[in-house]
């Protein structure tokens, strides 16, 4: 999963639905650890800003 930082509002919604805690947040940035991510697509589905896309 990849975050388009230009769209991301750092709202944390994706974090709440990630079953494996692959997403971390600071005051300025949200990041996905693709080593942990299981590609379940939950985060992509709920992101209100459509800031998450699948990696090529």
């Amino acid at each position: 999963m990849k975050i388009i930082h230009e769209f991301c509002d750092i709202c944390g919604t994706c974090v709440a639905v990630c079953p494996v805690d692959a997403i971390t947040v600071t005051e300025f940035k949200v990041e996905i650890d693709n080593e942990i991510c299981t590609n379940c697509l939950n985060c992509l589905k709920v992101c209100p800003a459509k800031a998450i896309v699948e990696c090529e």
């Binding site: 919604t13 974090v15 709440a16 639905v17 079953p19 589905k45 709920v46 209100p48």
Partner: peptide
């Protein structure tokens, strides 16, 4: 909403898709 701290304590805080409202 993020609720990561609970996970660090070993509590499952993940919400199902139907149990979260996505808002603008």
């Amino acid at each position: 909403t993020e609720s990561r701290v609970g996970r660090w304590a070993g509590i499952n805080t993940t919400v199902a898709l139907r149990d979260i409202d996505t808002c603008v």
